[in-house]
Nucleic acid binder design. Structure first.
Length: 921
RNA sequence: GCUUUGGUGGUGGAAUUGGUAGACACGAGGGACUUAAAAUCCCUUGGGCAGCAAUGCCUGUACGGGUUCAAGUCCCGUCCGAAGCACCA
């Protein structure tokens, strides 16, 4: 029998499906292991070879863990709500549900061909009402909760109102977006509507009005991570700022916990760093400067990380959007300020970014008192101060902050240096280092001492207090789209009200068209009877990240109608042990998911504070495009190596017409009518194409479909090859040039078992050499798989198989463990060989061979060599040597002496008469 | 600008974390088998020098220094690439 991969792969894929080989149940007798992929958005283009990279890596690990005796949960599903299906629906009128179902079917077919060990009985789809019932449920829980800063956790809103009734707003330390104090008496006298408006500032899912990223091209608002450089990530449409009423999630309340929680996670440093930057914690102080305009006095709150520099404050700056702008503008400056505000408002986000170098601003006409010097400083307005961060106002210290410096230079404001010997004639001195001067009681201190000393003083005198600030903003949670989860909210006399839990899910209604209404309302406004209990329902839908924020919990218990996840399932599976996916979700999904999980943890629905223990980011697979070179004004194509002799145009050529950069000229002529009469200038009888590394895309004809690889080489070759390509976390171009090598390895492996129809495997006892090959491989595979060095793991198989071929080793004792070890990588061929070896159960139920004495080499003995009282190394030497011989062998070895015994090479390094180390290969 | 991460043959990449640099694979060249091709197998392959030869010597991990018996790996400086953040006070 030859290695007939087509027959084998069909056979075993059917076998796994029929026998439900990978169906997983809770089993308290075995340790659990949860391996998860970031589920895909099923796009119309289907899978390309880049997608399975991470899936293969996780599948190998899942299969490996099964062989190690773990009860493995390895599910898959679809992130099925999203813009492309909706855009397609707007253009064609086809319901997104139909498109999505079609795409999912295609994805499933493609995934099945690669031989993944998913438990498909646990599949989830975010667009399935049975699934999004729990997305809506979580939203309602957030709507019905507030964040207690003192307890550092979310609590039910009823506990908040109870506190208000007894002690007013002062009785709680809550996360809140606008603070207006009220007493218990005042609270109790408020109307329902007033109470509700106040509670809205405390809810974890709340409605608020802010400037949002409005994308007219898509007709919806976007989250910050969906916007890049003023354009939408999806579609590339311009994005502008617009004030709108929106739903928010109070992610900012969790900023501290999201940041601290990172420390214990087994994620890459770069990814943790990205999240740290995104959350952006800074320690400092909030201070009050007394500002005055005419006879009136106002409190100007500012945040600073450099409380030590208050003596150098020479002016104050407000953000243009600040509430204080109006009160602090003097009649004389009124028109200048209004002109400036109009100028700023006209600018789009895009323009603001591109003009960061130009300094703009206007004087309000009023002054504030520097609380430490008692002197008046002018208050300015400038767009370089952001309304959304801190308090929307700053104290400016031009000597020690480059932005303040640029502003002071432009508007000719004084600059007072505060650090002895620093030069501020050309630029500000931003470094936190040096001895303070011109700073009253801080004089003589180092900056690092002066910062806490200044804050202590500020707190003591009541000017301000310690404060931690975060950069992260609350997540905007509504989209003016059709294809998303409807909000389980209706408006009872204008008050947003929750639909009762037992009425969930609130299903998406039918609409006649999927675009916004003529009046600019979201598509759901087109639905007939979009009401609840006679009141209008919310017409926006939830964003993409809603459905993906807790799907890992749903996999644990996917068919439960009474809970997102049952207590039993949650306490067994706990959290995801290994999560594999791309870096592009670093500041989106991976933050929202952690937030969502922490919230559910606070309310006691899940047992773990963090959802993903270990996270691996697989690299992107780029396309490798091929080019042909047409000689200008001819229909003649010149081979790449000779193209410098001609004037040519570079043309993308379909990579399916090219093998190892050699063009199939007949296929090229047949590709397109205009090339049917093409002529070629060849080198060495071949047409060699040029190549470039680019993104995989249809327009560059460089998309490689995994189906094609499965057709020509088989799924096992595809799996091995994707792993062999390089470390999984690295981005690399797809390059089929090496795929023959991997395919050759599988054929060679097969030939250890079969010579034509003759089955070669015998029960003979294995020799020392063969056992050594196996012994080495077991330890290597174990190490490599657990360190995700799959590329070297594959190499090690190749070496072992080459060596065994040299010995013509077809012994069961050696090959059986080999099949088990290779089965996570190439499951189909291994199942087939496992069956040929006489097993009637899937290799899935075998156990990974252990590295034990059984495989040690009988003729050798391992010696431990000590030096300075410590065991420094071990040496394998023949058993036949006497102990004196062993000692003299080792001691007589000179520096870098080489010593060979059988196939063992011993290298001993002796320095100044002492052995330093020995290397054995 | 800040943060993170890299720089090793013609190519993708190894190197047990400080211990024979270039594993394994591709490509290339040579050979065997074959009427021929495919398939398969064997040899050579960082650069340089010496030798009929087995082999030996020198050099070599972006560049310049340093620590060490020993550096691709650690430290300092320089150059280049990739990714993320970017008026965050």
């Amino acid at each position: 029998m030859d290695y007939d991969y087509k027959r084998i792969e069909r056979k075993w894929q059917a076998y796994w499906a029929d026998h439900q080989t990978f169906k997983t149940k809770e089993d308290s007798s075995r340790p659990k292991y949860y391996v998860m992929d970031m589920f895909p958005y099923p796009s119309g283009a289907g899978l390309h070879v880049g997608h399975p990279l991470g899936y293969i890596a996780s599948d190998i690990f899942a299969r490996y863990k099964r062989l190690r005796g773990y009860n493995v949960l390895h599910p898959m599903g679809y992130d099925a709500f999203g813009l492309p299906a909706e855009q397609y629906a707007i253009q064609t009128g086809q319901h997104p549900e139909i498109t999505t179902a079609k795409n999912i079917k295609r994805y499933r077919e493609q995934l099945d061909r690669i031989g993944f060990s998913y438990d498909w009985s646990r599949e989830v789809r975010t667009c399935d009402p049975k699934y999004y019932k729990w997305t809506q449920w979580a939203f309602l829980k957030m709507f019905g909760s507030w964040y207690d800063n003192s307890a550092e956790k979310a609590r039910p809103i009823e506990e908040l109102t109870a506190s208000f009734e007894k002690g007013g707003s002062g009785s709680v330390n809550a996360a809140c977006d606008s603070y207006e104090a009220f007493s218990a008496g005042e609270w109790n006298s408020f109307s329902e509507k007033e109470k509700d408006e106040i509670l809205m500032h405390y809810r974890i899912a709340y409605q608020g009005e802010t400037a949002v990223n409005w994308c007219p091209g898509l007709g919806t608002v976007l989250a910050n991570d969906e916007v890049r450089e003023g354009y939408s990530v999806r579609g590339g449409f311009p994005v502008e700022q617009k004030k709108m009423k929106q739903w928010f999630l109070r992610v900012s309340a969790y900023a501290g916990r999201l940041l601290d929680g990172l420390d214990d996670l087994d994620w890459t440093d770069s990814l943790k760093e990205m999240q740290r930057n995104w959350i952006g914690r800074s320690y400092g102080a909030e201070m009050v400067f007394k500002a005055h305009n005419g006879g009136k006095e106002y409190d100007m709150h500012i945040f600073t990380t450099r409380a030590d520099t208050v003596f150098g404050v020479t002016f104050m700056v407000l953000a243009p959007e600040s509430d204080l702008v109006e009160s602090l503008t003097t009649p004389g400056q009124k028109s200048a300020v209004e002109d400036y505000l109009r100028l700023v408002a006209k600018k789009t986000e895009r323009e603001r970014i591109s003009e960061t170098k130009t300094v703009t601003g206007v004087f309000t006409g009023s002054y504030a008192v520097n609380p430490l010097t008692g002197k008046d400083v002018p208050i300015w307005i400038s767009e370089y101060v952001l309304a959304g961060y801190g308090t929307g106002a700053i104290m400016a210290v031009p000597a020690h902050d480059s932005r303040d410096y640029a502003f002071a230079k432009k508007f000719d404001l004084p600059i007072i240096p505060l650090i002895a010997g620093c030069d501020v004639s050309e630029a500000s001195f931003d470094a936190k280092d040096g001895i303070m001067c011109n700073s009253g009681f801080l004089n003589g201190m180092n900056v690092k001492e002066a910062i806490p000393a200044a804050i202590d003083y500020v707190e003591k005198t009541g000017i301000g207090r310690r404060k931690v600030n975060y950069r992260i903003r609350d997540a905007i949670f509504s989209r003016q789209r059709y294809w998303g989860e409807p909000f389980p909210i209706y408006y009872k006399d204008g008050i947003p009200t929750a639909i009762p839990f037992d009425k969930l899910p609130l299903e998406l209604p039918e609409v006649d068209q999927f675009k916004p209404t003529e009046t600019g309302e979201p598509p759901l406004a087109r639905a007939k009877n979009w009401t609840y209990d006679g009141y209008p329902l919310e017409t926006s839908t939830m964003p993409g990240f809603a459905g993906s924020s807790a799907y890992y919990l749903r996999y644990m218990d996917p068919h439960n109608d009474n809970a997102l996840v049952s207590r039993e399932a949650d306490s067994y599976w706990k959290d995801v042990d290994l999560y594999i996916g791309g870096t592009e979700h670093a500041t989106g999904h991976l933050i929202y998911s952690r937030f969502w999980n922490k919230f559910l943890y606070d309310l006691g629905y899940v047992c773990r504070d963090e959802p993903f223990c270990k996270l691996i980011n697989q690299g992107m697979i780029q396309g490798r495009s091929n080019f042909v070179y047409r000689v200008v004004n001819t229909n003649t194509f010149v081979s790449c190596g000779l193209k410098d002799g001609y004037e040519t145009t570079e043309i993308h050529v379909d990579i399916n017409l090219v093998h190892n950069d050699k063009l199939d000229m007949e296929a090229f002529k047949a590709w397109r009518p205009e090339f049917s009469k093409a002529g070629f200038i060849l080198e060495g009888g071949e047409y060699i194409c040029g190549y470039a590394i680019e993104k995989m895309s249809k327009s560059m004809y460089n998309v490689v479909n995994p189906d094609e690889i499965c057709d020509t080489y088989g799924a096992d070759t595809l799996r091995l090859y994707e792993m062999f390509l390089g470390p999984i976390d690295q981005s690399k171009p797809w390059d089929t040039n090496g795929i023959d090598g991997v395919n050759r390895f599988l054929k060679k492996f097969w030939r250890l078992f079969w010579n034509g129809d003759e089955f070669l495997v015998r029960d003979d006892k294995a020799g020392a050499e063969e056992l050594k090959v196996l012994h080495k491989l077991i330890s290597k595979e174990q190490y490599d798989i657990e360190h995700f060095s799959y590329n070297t793991a594959v190499s090690s198989f190749m070496i072992a198989v080459n060596e065994l071929s040299d010995y013509r080793c077809s012994k069961k004792e050696i090959l059986e463990p080999l099949v088990i070890m290779l089965s996570p990588f190439a499951p189909h061929i291994c199942e087939e060989l496992w069956e040929a070896l006489g097993h009637d159960e899937s290799v899935t139920y075998a156990s990974f061979p252990e590295y034990i004495e059984k495989y040690t080499i009988e003729n050798e003995c391992t010696y431990a060599v000590s030096f300075n009282g410590k065991t420094r190394f071990t040496v394998s030497l023949p058993k036949s040597l006497s102990s004196g011989d062993v000692e003299s062998r080792i001691m007589s070895m000179d520096q870098t002496a080489r010593y060979t015994e059988g196939k063992t090479v011993v290298r001993v390094i002796v320095v100044q008469g002492k052995i330093v180390n020995v290397v054995i290969k």
